[in-house]
Each structure stands twice: as C-alpha cells, then as structure tokens.
Design a protein around this nucleic acid. Sequence first.
DNA 1: CCCTTAACCG
Length: 578
Amino acid sequence: MEPGSRLYTELFKKCTELGKLKEGQMAHAHFLASRFQHYVSLQCTVVNMYAKCGDMELARKAFDEMPERDMVSYTMLITGYSQSNGFKEALDLYVEMLKMGLQPNEFTFGSALKCAGGMQSDAMGRVIHGTCLKCGYDNNVYVGSALVDMYTRCKRIDDAKAIFNGLECKNEVSWNALIAAYAREGEGHNAVELFSEMKRVGFNPTHFTYSSIFAACASNGALEQGKWVHADMLKSGQKLVAFVGNTLLDMYGKAGSIDDAKKVFDRLVKKDIVSWNSMLTSYAQHGLGEKAVDLFEEMRGFGFQPNKITFLCVLNACSHSGLLDRGLYYFELLRKYKLEPDITHYVTVVDLLGRAGQLDRAQTFISEMTILPTAAVWKALLGACRMHKNMELGAYAAERVFELDPHDSGPHMLLSNMYASAGRLSDAARVRKMMNENGVKKEPACSWVEIGNSVHVFVANDENHPQREEIRRKWEEIRDGIEKIGYVPDTSHVLWFLDERERGERLQYHSEKLALAFAILNTAAGTTISIKKNIRVCGDCHSAFRFVSRLVGQEIVLRDTNRFHHFRSGSCSCRDYW
DNA sequence: CCCTTAACCG
C-alpha cells in the first residue's frame, strides 16, 4: 500500500527530532519517487530535516532542487545556517529573499538577527532592525529578544537595554539574553541585579538564567552569592541536569569551594564530558594534581571517551602540581586516543616542562613542534624562565613574543623586571621604552574581596577607598607583626626605576595587601578570608600572605588568574610552586 | 512547516 503524504510528514519529523540523517536520506529518496514529490510543504520539511541533522550541504541541495522557494523554505535554510555558525551564508540568503520580494516573518528575523550578532556586525544588525520596524515586527517577543541579544553581541549594551526596556511583551528569553550579556561582559553585579528584578516582576528563572548567573559568580569568585542563587534554584524545584549542573560545579570550583564542586559532581543526574572536564579543571585550579589524575583514570575506567579539552585539563593539572612524567605520559596518550594535539596542548607541555625547571627540554620541545609556535608557546617559556631565573633564554622567548603579539603588556613587564632583578637596568629601560613607543598599556592590577553580599575592589596605592587610612594603619600593624616572625620584603617585585625607599613603600600597598588588611578589619577571628586578583599574585605578596596566615591564625584563600592559593599556619597549598 | 537565551580550554 502506498503511504499517504501525512506519513512522509511524520517520517521526516521523526528523523529531524532524533537527528537520524541516514534514515532521513532514505525517506527522502522514497519521497522523490512518490506521487507527493511536488508537495511544497513536504519539500520544505526535507530542507528542515537536513538542516536540523546538521548537514547543511544536503539542506542546501534540497532547497536548490525546489521548483519554487517560498518564505518558509528560505527561513528554514537561514535558520539552519544560523544554528551551525554559517552566519555569512544565512545573511546572503536573507538578502536574496528580500530581493525576491518575499517578506520575512518573525522566524526569519529571529535567525537573521542571531547571525548579525554572531558576526558582531552592528551595521547589518541595524539594517535588519530597520526592516523589522518596517514590517511591524518590532514588538514581537521573539524578534524583541533576538534584537536584545544581537545588540549585546555587537557590544551595544545600551542599545540592547533600551530595546529591552521598550518591549511591551517580554518573556524569559528576553531577560536571559540581557542577563547572559552581563555575565559575558564580566558585569556579574548587573547580571545578579537583573536576576532579582526578573523574579520580582514575576518571571520564573530558567536553566539558561541560572547558568548565566553561575558563570557570572564563577568569574567574580562570588561564592556567597553563588550559594544563595544555588539555594534559590533548589527552592524553585529545578533538577540538577547536566548543563546547568556543570555551570554550578564550575562556579564552586572557580569561586573557591572544591568540596561543593565535588558534591555537585557526585550528585549530577547524568554526567557528560563537560562535567568531567569541569571537575578536572577545579582540581587543577586548587593544585590538586593527584586528585585530577585519579579522576581522569576513573573516567577512563568507566569507558568515558576523553576529548581534547579533557587532555588539556589533565595536562594543566599535572603542570600546576609538578607531575612532570605523568603529564608527558598523558601527552603521548592523546595520540593513542586518535586525537590530534593542537597548539593549546603544546603550550601546556611547554608550561609543564618549564615549571619543572626543564628549560632546555622545553626549548627542544618547541623546536621539534610540527606546528608553528604561537605567542602563547613563547609566553609559557618566558614564564618558566622568570620562575627559574634564566635571563638569556627568557630574553629570547620574550623577543619571540614581541614579534607575534606586540601589544600584550605582561611579557614586556616580565622581561623588564627580569632585567632589573639581574641588575641590567639599561636593558630594563630599553624594554620600557619599547613599550611606550609601541603604545603598550599596562593592565591595572586589582584585587577584590567578598564580605557578606557585597564585593569590595582595591587597586594598588588605593587613594579613593573610604576606609583607606584605617586600612593602611592595619597593614602597617600587620607588617610589623610579620617582620617579627621572619617576613623580609622582596622589592624586586616593584618598578625598578623607583629608588629603594620608594620601592619598599609601594610594595606594601599592592592591591592584594590592601584587600587583605580590609578583610581582616571586617571579618571575625577564625573566619576564612577570600581574596581574588585579576593578574597573578606577586611574589612578595605571596610570601607576606604566608606569614599573615600564621600571625592572625586565619585561613586565607587567594585566587589569581592561574590558581588558588590556600594559606594556613604559615604555608601555602601551592608549596610555593607556581 | 520555520525563531531568540546557558557550560568545560590558552
């Protein structure tokens, strides 16, 4: 018996839903031989099926073979491209369809705007926005949310906010788009504020909302706030499914609670590859290399396939814990899993060798790389040279960095300070001059500390803080205390062109020291103090923090861009290996 | 028939 047209519809829909490409192709062939082959709606469904199965070539072919293409078929193909990063192709089609005199609908606009956002094309986005207005779709909730998202991705957050405020009809997605944007841009405070407002006016946060908020808390290291939102999510009855669970686990890891991260990991309803990778990353950030290795082996034991990122995570963990041989073994294992190492893996191996003091091996490793070394590779070597005080190789690595990435201030500062420490002041001055000539700006260092529900930010030599006098007095008192138990300031960590007295002075007001004094002033004895820094901790501050943890008997947790340092009774969890 | 929002890595 010949199938009816309805059956084809069902068949194509089923294949679309389950992502069954092969079966879809068979159904398609069957359909082309049937008496329904001229049904436009079925031809459309085929285009959509291929697009949703991720094969844009087949979708395009089916589209081109349609005798006449309507607005919906265009929209399906545009959407397909937009969902697989084919922004350019999608927008070309969008323009073509307008030329054909076909008027887009809210579906077309939604996808077209996603593409403009994906390409960060402000100009294209505005043109599409104009067409939305002309066609009367500007108040459609889908188009409105897509507009908000598009403007945020073009870094026009004010325009996005204006659109959002003007929307007569909002849904969760409209809120999520803006919240996600704040999280992406590192404005966690605004993200959380918008989250509260969203709830206040009666919208229910979704998995998307919670994911964005957790990501924001992760980058701010806002543990208390993160816990509060976690409690809120539990209260609202959301299940701990993989996606949002992974952001939660990542938040706990990055905000400083490895125990909570592990708890979330163990309670995940279903673990996916990202869950494992996130847990490995958490261990790496806390310097728990052995735990990371155990977890990686456990994962392999379960038959879970590691991907390239997994290897990056575990290599990174080995590097931070000085597990040299283990790391090199995993680098070899990468190929056994039929994974091709990319540049990021090479960077990590250079870091691994370099930190372990194997500078010659690191250099040989670089020279034997099958792909061209990037700036990141040389930066890793430079970092190792600073750590192990190898001036000559460090200068060589720095030169390579300057060729490949001339605008990064970090390597310039590093080399300049290395020269200064080695007493080569004219070389130090030369690098400094080069920086000025090339317009390289030094990134300002800052530290912040979360007390209760608010975050307090400090910059070096902070002149603007309302409690600055009190903070300075407190630090001086602490400094006297730690000097009595063995702290010796190391002035090689400040600008070499200041005189010795001024260097000693400046050193004492690094942002992390100010944050620490502030935290001691504002927390009860016995509380753990938690401080974050936007660049790596300075060597002198690291040493000072060790003594302070002994002096005041409080635990101090410091997160820098690389990892966590847990200071307790005079020593640090990194065992001064960083 | 077709749309918009979130995670792991240098």
